[in-house]
Design a protein around this nucleic acid. Structure first.
Lengths: 222, 222
DNA sequence: GTCATGTTTGACAATTCTGTTAACACCAAT
DNA sequence: ATTGGTGTTAACAGAATTGTCAAACATGAC
């Protein structure tokens, strides 16, 4: 009834003022990431976007749908690069270095992302499955082996060459991701514990970006 | 007006049925940890505790206060042991081993804890400061140096003895905590990614408990 | 027994929040 | 100019949620 085909044929004259739907989505991201889905109010999102709150419903029908759009976009920015790098055929230490650099660069720009995503997945675990599907384009049953295979082979090679102590692929991945993402998810706690402001935290991350690959690889070297 | 001195002189005859205030706090923990503070409903907590929801207000005055009580209790269970071990005078590798074991044992029982605490601190960063104070009994300005001093000295000694590569204390701590806590905070994602159920995740944690100390210490050994 | 005190409940008030509707402005095409 | 469609708003309806209150209830003391 209210749903129309949304052909965004933006008036070519006014290029400066962004597409409304986009502006709403951006505002929703801002608010949802800070307050969480349950804690956010539609009214606040409307204010942040500078529009009447009825417009949110016009474009996204309900809070649930808007929240899902935001979540999907957020997750899409966080995970795929990770999977791409891990599943590539770069040498193992190159993979580690790239992931650390990419992830830390990314999160420096969007520090609320990890906390938001972890929190949402804790409250709606069912979204995780749906998410992995969306990200992969196919179902996880087919993507997982692909990543696992190359990674397991690389680890195996280095173990056989006596260059690395053995480790399960799952532990390898979780360790790497933990070290990259956790500091951002726990940022308020970290900053308080160490008595830091934003600049100190930034320096901490800079240093981490340099030192983490070596730390991780040394943990496995022999 | 409604606040009375709450002398819990529990009727000694009926020891089985727990103190109501305690039952409410337990129920609130359950619900808040699962749904988050903003997502939880007072009605649900009342139902979980098996009482009328007016009782929640009778004992805790408002949702905010109840939420704070729950948060304080949760944080009190997670952090102090960590600080205690880290600040003790055990040898360094013993500290690492103990923290890994204790933390993983603890979290196996309460897997929602990390996600809840991280989430709450993201939405109310101001609570972090207040929390650290409460935990320490004194202000963080005095506790922090204490932990730092012993830890920094231990690291320094091993570095000088050519047994360890140098690392900043902050990075040391964050790395250790990341590896312990993150897997639980990201549990839904981890389980989905790997296609696991509860048993597989439990086995994963078991293995982690055994292997993590070595992983961590090897990362720094030379 | 009844009185006093703390506990518990059902009903209700007040507010906040989501979602809907009808009117209006603007532009494009006929 | 008129018509039709899209985007936008103000006002409103309905639901859900937090919080209050007076009355009922238990229990031990006198």
């Amino acid at each position: 009834m209210t749903v129309k085909k949304r052909s965004r044929a933006k008036s070519p004259a006014v290029a400066a003022d962004a597409d409304t739907e986009q502006r709403i989505l951006d505002a929703a991201s801002t608010v949802f990431l800070r307050r969480g889905t349950a804690g956010a109010r539609m009214q606040d999102i409307a204010a942040e976007a500078g529009v009447n709150h009825a417009l949110l419903h016009y474009y996204f029908r309900s809070k649930d749908r808007l929240a899902e759009a935001v979540f999907r976009r957020a997750a899409t920015r966080l995970l795929p690069p990770f999977v791409a790098i891990l599943g590539s055929d770069l040498p193992l230490d190159e993979k580690v270095a790239r992931i650390v650099e990419h992830e830390l660069d990314q999160l420096r720009e969007a520090p609320y992302l990890p906390g938001y995503i972890l929190s949402e997945l804790n409250h709606h675990p069912e979204r995780a499955a749906q998410l992995v599907q969306t990200l992969a384009g196919v179902d996880p049953e087919r993507v997982r082996p692909a990543i696992f295979a190359t990674l397991a082979r690389q680890i195996d090679e280095r173990v056989k060459a006596k260059k690395m102590r053995p480790i399960a692929v799952e532990q390898f991945i979780v360790n790497l991701v933990s070290l990259c993402i956790f500091p951002f998810a726990a940022r308020p706690m970290v900053m308080t514990m160490f008595g830091w402001g934003d600049e100190e935290f930034a320096r901490f991350i800079d240093r981490r970006r340099r030192e983490l690959p070596a730390f991780f690889l040394e943990a496995l070297a022999r």
